[in-house]
Design a protein around this nucleic acid. Sequence first.
DNA 1: CTGAAAGCGCTTACAG
DNA 2: CTGAAAGCGCTTACAG
Lengths: 348, 348
Amino acid sequence: MRTKATILDIARAAGVSKSTVSLVLQGSDRIRSETAAKVRKAIGDTGYVYNRGAANLRKPHSNFVGMVINDLTNPFFAEMAVGMERVFQAAGIVPFIANTAESPVRQEEVLKSLMEQGVAGLIVSPARGSQTDAFQRVEAAGIPVVFAMRRLPESRIPIVAPDNIRGAFMATRHLIAKGHRRLAFFGGSLELVVYRDRLQGFQEACAEAGIREDAVLLVEGETSRKGGMACLNSALAASEPPTAALCFNDAVAFGVMLGLRQHRLEPGRDFAVVGFDDVAEAEHYVPALTSVAVDTASLGERAAQTVLKMIQSRTTRADDHIGSVNLVVRESCGPTRPNGKTAKGEAA
Amino acid sequence: MRTKATILDIARAAGVSKSTVSLVLQGSDRIRSETAAKVRKAIGDTGYVYNRGAANLRKPHSNFVGMVINDLTNPFFAEMAVGMERVFQAAGIVPFIANTAESPVRQEEVLKSLMEQGVAGLIVSPARGSQTDAFQRVEAAGIPVVFAMRRLPESRIPIVAPDNIRGAFMATRHLIAKGHRRLAFFGGSLELVVYRDRLQGFQEACAEAGIREDAVLLVEGETSRKGGMACLNSALAASEPPTAALCFNDAVAFGVMLGLRQHRLEPGRDFAVVGFDDVAEAEHYVPALTSVAVDTASLGERAAQTVLKMIQSRTTRADDHIGSVNLVVRESCGPTRPNGKTAKGEAA
DNA sequence: CTGAAAGCGCTTACAG
DNA sequence: CTGAAAGCGCTTACAG
């Protein structure tokens, strides 16, 4: 391995100055095409690799963005990533994904590394337990950030998220229309703003139906399959267990259904469950999971467009985007009545 | 947002030279602790961000590695990533993940961007259809690369992968022991070395049992759920359809089971399916999927350790690692007989 | 359309 | 234990 080629090497090889090389590298039209061709040939011959670190020393911003995710294991984020990738690719930007595995410490490290590398912008779904000051450094550095799905209280960072309140409200109403009167909300915790929003929708629907607060069970927990199983177990141990649950997300819902089986209970028949996110798997699960669809890919696209615009206009502010939601009714709350009425004759 | 702070600013603030600042930034023990403390305080006060691009101009290598994945949507890779993250984190290295979505073009872009950024090492599961020369540039640049799961024919890049031949052999034997005589192999394609290996194990087991070649159906396809459904459909259209299938991976297997249901066939009872990878979901699926477990997290750890060692020893070569596999028998091939014999009385 | 020069933010011998 | 100086690989006015 001989020492790495630089623009100077390729300038010599092409018989031009290094300014010229730099210009063709940037696709400038100030260079005659024959000259550019010579340069490009030299680049190919030498196996030259552009050094973006050096370039960034002089340029206003780099060409990569970071997507920092709290749980890569949740397929939801992979689905969102594909939406993002579409828009970034079109803009000639490469998105790098980093996983924090729900650890604020890890998140700190990841953010630091991304900044040091000169990241142009950030899309982040903050780890649970993130402090508001966790993003002060990136804000101070003037790096555009948009939150996706999760946000921090009292932060001015724009967010792209679904209409959590309405989604939870619709889902809960559905459960109530199915005749359930003892309801639970499983997974997540109060420190999450999303949780508070979804909980609010849940409680509004309960209130509307005149369900008393003591007929409602809130079980906080990890926002994962494992968390869902744990929630169910603790709920079932109550003196008067719930008969239906709105789950913080689909991962929790899958965990709940798993747990039900372990208790020899059949999801849908013995206990109704509805999820949130509508990941691809929801449709294929047995029983198929009723879930709040959030149009995941669109959310990803929107988040990407937002950072992109922020980067281009050198701003650190943008409007929030709240995406519309809709309830996809499948089998996990029992059979659907064709006329939209439940067994108890209530309007759906 | 005032202009960004540099080591010069913090040198002035701390009343030292910039060399001193650089030294404390690198944790040198040549600096008196009081001096270091002053410097660190100045760093905190200014919101200084270390510029790794500038540093890399002078340093031999950077501190980040790239993991380039062919399908982020396959939970297998998320599982492998957690194994990797453990070892990288311990080494103070941040792994960035990039998705190629099975596109060689996208892969090219991603690789280029990573190299320009000064990536220290790469773990890659090449996109289907990658040409052998796709990695010439990174090899020429002397960047350590290890392939994970998939490799390219005639490449000297080391690989970390499970024992595909043996895994497929064991799985196929299991199918045969269950009494199946018309077998299929679903998903993947000959251009993939992994495919050839798994196919070899499959065929060896068939040969061992004296199954004739015309009783065996090979259906190539995408290595995804969707691909699995397509494979099944085309297999079912045959004049004498198979009764069991070894699937290229679990994603394909899930697709096959989905497809079976659409044909009103019950996986396990009407058609036996076994997967490969044993992702977390396999255990929880209904019916639970029999699959070849590859110890995913260990594979990830091993791959990470390998690049790490290559980076440290400035080499571009390493030994391959073939991980052991074992068949996890669940319900997707029908009920297991307690004595390990099939209905037809054959040894398992 | 192209070249010479300055400078981006660091690190690294080299002195002291 | 700390400082002054050179130089890493680029880009960007500025000339010509």
